[in-house]
Simulated scan of single mutants.
Amino acid sequence: MTRSEAVKSFNIKSVLPVVATLLLYCIFKSACMKGGELDYVWLWILCGLPFGLHRMYLWIVPGDGSLGGGITLFALNFILGGVIGGFVLAWRLIVAVWYVPLTVYRLIVG
């Protein structure tokens, strides 16, 4: 692996997820403040929503066709997508931390 490939891989696997997470945190922090305290559950769901957005449609359960049931399932899909995306986001951050020493090793060795 060349140096430019290692740096490109580092930017994609490490820098980009961390920057996206910080941006999402800054955007949703004010929306998750309740009584002067930060609600971490809603922050987890809202920050994970972009990472789980395309996965939430897998959980659609057919309802009885009423408007209230449809809205409830739509909201439930957003919440489930946010929770799943929160785990995806956590995994991407773990991979980002792992890529720091791996990139240093790649730059030193080759």
Rank of each mutant, 00 (worst) to 15 (best):
residue 43 L to W: 02
residue 69 G to Y: 06
residue 15 V to S: 05
residue 97 V to D: 04
residue 60 I to V: 10
residue 78 F to H: 08
residue 89 L to C: 06
residue 21 T to N: 09
residue 94 I to A: 11
residue 71 I to Q: 08
residue 70 G to E: 12
residue 39 D to V: 02
residue 70 G to K: 11
residue 47 C to S: 14
residue 37 E to Q: 15
residue 50 P to I: 00
residue 73 L to N: 11
residue 24 L to A: 15
residue 21 T to Q: 05
residue 14 S to W: 02
residue 41 V to W: 11
residue 42 W to Q: 12
residue 5 E to R: 09
residue 26 C to Y: 13
residue 28 F to A: 02
residue 55 R to S: 09
residue 9 S to V: 06
residue 17 P to S: 04
residue 34 K to I: 14
residue 36 G to P: 01
residue 25 Y to W: 12
residue 26 C to D: 05
residue 90 A to M: 13
residue 54 H to P: 00
residue 33 M to L: 15
residue 12 I to P: 04
residue 98 W to F: 10
residue 41 V to Y: 11
residue 12 I to Q: 14
residue 105 Y to R: 10
residue 74 F to E: 04
residue 79 I to F: 14
residue 109 V to G: 03
residue 37 E to M: 13
residue 21 T to Y: 12
residue 55 R to W: 10
residue 63 G to W: 06
residue 48 G to T: 00
residue 45 I to T: 10
residue 99 Y to K: 14
residue 77 N to R: 08
residue 65 G to D: 02
residue 39 D to M: 02
residue 36 G to R: 01
residue 93 L to V: 05
residue 84 I to F: 07
residue 68 G to T: 06
residue 48 G to Y: 00
residue 4 S to M: 12
residue 84 I to K: 05
residue 27 I to K: 07
residue 21 T to R: 01
residue 48 G to I: 00
residue 38 L to W: 01
residue 82 G to K: 00
residue 84 I to R: 05
residue 2 T to F: 09
residue 89 L to W: 01
residue 72 T to K: 12
residue 6 A to Y: 02
residue 87 F to Q: 04
residue 66 S to N: 04
residue 23 L to V: 10
residue 23 L to R: 04
residue 91 W to V: 07
residue 25 Y to N: 08
residue 87 F to W: 10
residue 101 P to H: 12
residue 20 A to L: 15
residue 34 K to H: 09
residue 75 A to E: 08
residue 33 M to K: 11
residue 47 C to M: 15
residue 11 N to W: 07
residue 63 G to F: 04
residue 106 R to P: 03
residue 30 S to Y: 13
residue 107 L to I: 09
residue 30 S to Q: 12
residue 62 P to M: 05
residue 5 E to S: 09
residue 63 G to K: 03
residue 53 L to A: 11
residue 82 G to S: 13
residue 38 L to G: 01
residue 93 L to E: 03
residue 7 V to R: 07
residue 62 P to L: 06
residue 50 P to C: 03
residue 2 T to S: 15
residue 108 I to T: 10
residue 14 S to T: 14
residue 70 G to D: 13
residue 96 A to E: 02
residue 110 G to N: 14
residue 76 L to Y: 13
residue 19 V to P: 07
residue 8 K to I: 09
residue 107 L to Y: 08
residue 108 I to R: 15
residue 79 I to E: 03
residue 30 S to N: 14
residue 73 L to E: 14
residue 25 Y to R: 08
residue 95 V to L: 09
residue 40 Y to E: 07
residue 58 L to G: 14
residue 9 S to M: 11
residue 23 L to G: 07
residue 44 W to D: 05
residue 68 G to F: 06
residue 100 V to I: 15
residue 99 Y to Q: 15
residue 64 D to F: 06
residue 11 N to D: 08
residue 18 V to R: 06
residue 19 V to S: 07
residue 86 G to C: 03
residue 88 V to G: 00
residue 86 G to P: 00
residue 23 L to D: 02
residue 37 E to L: 12
residue 19 V to E: 09
residue 98 W to S: 11
residue 102 L to P: 03
residue 38 L to A: 01
residue 33 M to P: 00
